[in-house]
Amino acid sequence: MRELLERLGKMAGALVTNTGLMALMLFHASIYAFTPPIKFRNIFKQMEFVGVKSLFVVVLTGSFTGMVLAYQSFNALKRFGAESLVGPTVALSMARELGPVLTGLMVSGRAGSAMATELGTMRVTEQIDALHTMGVNPIKHLVVPRILAGVLMLPFLTVITDFVGVVGGYFVGVHLLDINPGVYMGRTMDFVNVEDLFYGLYKSIVFGLIISLTACYHGFYTTGGAEGVGKAATNAVVLGCVLILAFNYLMTSALL
């Protein structure tokens, strides 16, 4: 019993410490983000890494998800004779939930793990210490560009995921399930509006922050050599994904 309580106590202590350090990192990054000189080159480099280099994976994810969604919704809706609602079902699901969530999860797996690995390697090979000794603030130099890239690029990637999802759904609905294209597009336009798109984009901004902050935090405070770098990458992705799903629920319940 005592052992169990000790373990719980240690876990609670670690949770408080980690949350505190992460909040502190975010606080410092927020201040340094607006403190000149702004390192645009570093920011653009990270935006390219998070955004452009994630394009392929989000296009694949979005299109296949849209196609599956069209099949599944067609299968369900035809029982009520409402096959014409496949278009809006796909578009609404993509814009409000699946677009931001799947983009977040995929970017967390691709870019979040890479960020944590890169910063973790820099930590264990003393490159972060080297920045300190040169009078360069590592939070400003390494963390700020990554957090900004996450926050700025996730909405763009989400729009692309939404778009290819809708295109995938259209392809399956119109070309494979023989829904009239005019009906498909007309119904989609009737039921989906710009607010639905923005609803998903608000979420994606938060997910971008979650992905980059958890990755930077775990990478920046890596200890224990190569094994520690591996753990940092795993922890960054696991925590990032769990927080994305949890915050998605919280935001859905708050925004609806």
């Binding site: 820099m122 090979t125 003393e126 490159q127 210490d129 080297a130």
Partner: peptide, 11 residues
């Protein structure tokens, strides 16, 4: 200036 054990060059 500091020279680190593993040189700590930026990869």
């Amino acid at each position: 200036g500091m020279l680190f054990q593993g040189s700590a060059l930026f990869d």
